[in-house]
């Protein structure tokens, strides 16, 4: 359903949704393709600027080396943590059968 020249295709949207394990309905995929296209259009206006010599910025503040001393602090109480889990066995989190390959 992507328009010609659109910045993101419907196939890309469904692919990304799959990677994020999101189940989209056909209607959702259509509307997200349109909405993401608008967002990318806006981003494209920034791309039009000459940014040669400007390093990519992952952070708005120019900070480096935010560090902490290698000193232990108390951990969470195991019983309290495990009481929040849907299923527990033997002091461990119980998870359903793993289908995918280990990354």
């Amino acid at each position: 359903m992507s328009e010609p020249g659109a910045r993101i295709t419907r196939a890309e949207v469904t692919h990304v949704a799959r990677l994020a394990r999101l189940a989209l309905t056909d209607d959702e995929a259509d509307s997200l393709t349109r909405e993401l296209g608008v967002i990318l259009d806006n981003a494209a206006r920034v791309s039009a600027l000459d940014t040669a010599g400007v390093p990519p910025t992952a952070h708005p503040v120019p900070l480096v080396n935010v560090l902490r001393a290698d000193v232990p602090k108390p951990c969470l109480d195991r019983d309290e943590v495990l009481s929040q889990a849907p299923a527990v066995e033997d002091g461990r989190f119980l998870v359903p059968r793993i289908l995918g390959e280990e990354p």
């Binding site: 560090l67 000193v71 951990c75 195991r78 002091g91 461990r92 989190f93």
Partner: peptide
Amino acid sequence: ACPNLFGAEPNTNICPVCLGLPGSLPVLN
């Protein structure tokens, strides 16, 4: 700041950061 220990009882060296709880923030050692 959880201890880096081998062989501890399961899930005794865990905190919001290494459990990925919402709102927790990592700080580099």
